[in-house]
Design a binder for these strands. Structure first.
Lengths: 231, 231
DNA sequence: CGTTGTGAAATTCTTCACAGCG
DNA sequence: CGCTGTGAAGAATTTCACAACG
């Protein structure tokens, strides 16, 4: 992987560590390729061209090849990519070789749904704990886990070695729980709470807001199919 | 203002309605502003500057003002924005004044969580039906709804006037259900199924994949805290 | 005055097109 | 010959900086 690639500038690498950074948009798509490759692997496909992998992932082949170029050169010209080989390299680039242990905070409907969601385990994320503050819920079984008391969060996070946390709780308490989680040393947080959370630098926070998704859909729907709407 | 009008993909062939299109990235952020404004409204705040609304939304003030410029000029120079007034205009621009009726397909853990999720109702989306194919589940109560038989989907969608559908079902059946939903006339779909769905042009599809979010988080986590640190 | 709204510059992302290689 | 990998071109988006204005 030659890459006459020089980082533009302002790369926050203090020095030395020239680990090539992958553009955010490309990272998001790499997960799609990985999913498609996993499906192919299960179907016994062992080679794939950029054209067909792109189609299976819903992107253009040019975009796909450009994205893969950030990861490395794992294809064979004139042939394509070996499914398993490529799959492994994308996983490595995404940091999925590490053992990710996820704790879910909030055992309401969403928290329970997430805890039982097979998609996590099957993609290398191990759900190790689920918390709730409601004493009526603490102790209940959710999947193969038992709901822990949110009061013991720090201790349980430590004991289970959780290194990612999913927040599935009401907006009102999200920030304070988030603060505790950060204080406990967790540096990767996925929040489903519909609020802007403040986290210190060095902590990775991603947000998913389901109502937001519907609103975006509403915008497009209104544009493409509203015959009567003028202003 | 200008007519920098290049359509990314299949835009309807009509030419009469030249409603100004808002960049996708801006649309996504407008929903954040709306959320922040709603919170402020509830707190009794009635004026806000671009600077503070930007902070409450987690973006730069320059980005915020640029985004609002796509919607219109609703601020007062030297003063700021009136919370309610701006809120109303963003809602209108996003198409949220229309009555959106949402049907959820799949009454598993996720489907139930979504059906009971207060965030939809509170932001103008009315959940009007929930379906499942499992006869053990059909008829159960979920929130204030009763699970309908997926076999009757077309009829129920018609009767309830659903104009948006949320797919909360296994990857394996997602495409075929999606096809039925499209055939029934629904043109806006939010899918939680971890597969690439094919929809005809004119149908709006958005996807949320929770495992994908964790993978993206993993990438960043690995970059920012893995180098050669021992702990 | 202080803050909005916006051209223009800077940056990032996507697409093109083709050289390079198996 | 066919397909990958990649510079270069082209779009889109974000940031800057300041004129306009209540």
């Amino acid at each position: 992987m030659t890459s006459l690639d020089s980082s533009p500038e302002a790369v926050r690498g203090d020095s030395g560590t020239a680990a090539k950074q992958i553009p955010p948009a490309a990272v998001a798509r790499l997960t799609l390729y990985l999913r498609a490759l996993t499906t192919m692997l299960a179907e016994g496909v062992d080679r794939v061209s950029s054209e067909s992998l792109a189609e299976a992932s819903g992107v253009s082949s040019a975009t796909l090849r450009k994205d893969l170029s950030h990861v490395g050169s794992y294809g064979t010209r004139g042939v394509g990519y070996e499914v398993q080989y490529l799959s492994r390299h994308i996983s490595a680039a995404l940091g999925l070789t590490k053992d990710w242990k996820v704790a879910i905070v909030g055992a309401g409907n969403l928290g329970k749904a997430l805890a039982r969601y097979g998609g996590f385990e099957s993609r290398g994320f191990d759900v190790v704990a689920i918390f709730d503050a409601d004493q009526m819920i603490v102790g209940n079984e959710v999947g193969w886990l038992r709901v822990s008391d949110a009061a013991d969060m720090e201790a349980v996070l430590q004991r289970t070695g959780a290194n990612m946390v999913v927040l599935a709780l009401p907006a009102a308490v999200a920030q304070s729980v988030c603060d505790r989680v950060v204080a406990a040393g967790v540096r990767s947080i996925l929040s489903f709470a519909p609020v802007m959370l403040q986290v210190p630098p060095g902590v990775n926070l991603r947000k998913v807001d389901m109502a937001t998704e519907l609103q975006i859909l509403a915008y497009h729907a209104q544009r493409t199919q509203a015959p009567e709407e003028l202003e």
